[in-house]
């Protein structure tokens, strides 16, 4: 009986999670500018209007740029730091990790306005570069956590075995370390990209005249007649993400079945 109660709860919770998310695509097919019930009819015109919305596409491109740069940089920084703390017994490791993780304990709005102040004092313009800097604050702690976990599960003997078999430090990294921590690197890239792609508040303060997609959407939320197009884009992004996850999972399973790749 308890077993069934828990199962029932699990499905109810799933519904709680999905209803708000599924409402959006429904309205992207609704033949009305107003996002309100009752539904008025089926249309695909909001999707047709997507291609013509150059401002939105521009914002999308900005977000892809910022997301890519943030993902690459935060993973690189995370990689270096994770290597340093798992590889060497350094004094002050705890303090350094604490400092790097600090943004997790500071509300985004404080991060946003503090960088705004920095740019103001330094006389630098608001830009996508500033947004990337802000997003690094949020993403490096995540990247570091993911990569440290991966490095800690990594057997140091394997690097010594490689050196013992004649490879120098650099080649050992490419032939042994890198392939083995690759899943961690991919996870870090993905996590940082999604986080940046979806981040609003920091970008809101720092993006200036080059809005990212969330900043653009925020603007549209005040102009209801533009919203169905935004919802159409949201539906496409959601579908694409799910397809990508499914694809990644499929590829991962392929890898598992190949006898060449062990545990």
């Amino acid at each position: 009986m308890r077993k069934h109660a828990l199962l029932l709860y699990a499905f109810a919770y799933l519904a709680f999670l999905y209803v708000p998310v599924l409402v959006l695509p429904i309205f992207s097919f609704n033949d009305s500018q107003f996002i309100a019930f009752p539904l008025t009819g089926f249309t695909t015109r909001w999707y047709a209007a997507l291609g013509a919305d150059s401002a939105m596409l521009h914002a999308l491109v900005n977000s892809l740029k910022v997301g890519t740069a943030t993902a690459l940089l935060s993973t690189l920084l995370g990689l270096l730091a994770a290597r340093a703390v798992t590889r060497y017994r350094l004094r002050g490791t705890g303090a350094a990790l604490g400092f790097i993780s600090l943004p997790l304990f500071i509300p985004d709005i404080v991060l946003g306005i503090s960088l705004l102040l920095l740019l103001g004092v330094a006389g630098l313009p608001l830009s996508l570069g500033a947004v990337v800097l802000g997003h690094l604050l949020v993403c490096v702690p995540f990247a570091l956590t993911v990569l440290i976990a991966r490095f800690e599960g990594f057997d140091r003997d394997l690097e010594e075995a490689s050196a013992d078999l004649g490879e120098n430090g650099w080649m050992t990294f490419w032939r042994v370390t890198f392939p083995l921590i690759l899943p961690g690197i991919l996870a870090s890239l993905l996590l940082a990209f999604i986080t940046s792609f979806d981040e609003f508040l920091v970008a809101y303060f720092l993006s200036g005249t080059e809005p990212t997609l969330p900043v653009y959407i925020w603007g549209q939320l005040r102009f209801p007649e533009r919203l169905p197009v935004v919802l159409a884009l949201g539906a496409i992004i959601l579908t694409t993400s799910i397809a990508l996850v499914a694809l990644a999972e499929y590829v991962r399973n392929l890898g598992v079945k190949r006898p060449m790749v062990g545990a």
């Binding site: 979806d198 959407i217 949201g234 996850v245």
Partner: peptide
Amino acid sequence: PFWTSYLL
């Protein structure tokens, strides 16, 4: 569900 934009 968390792949949808936070704002949306």
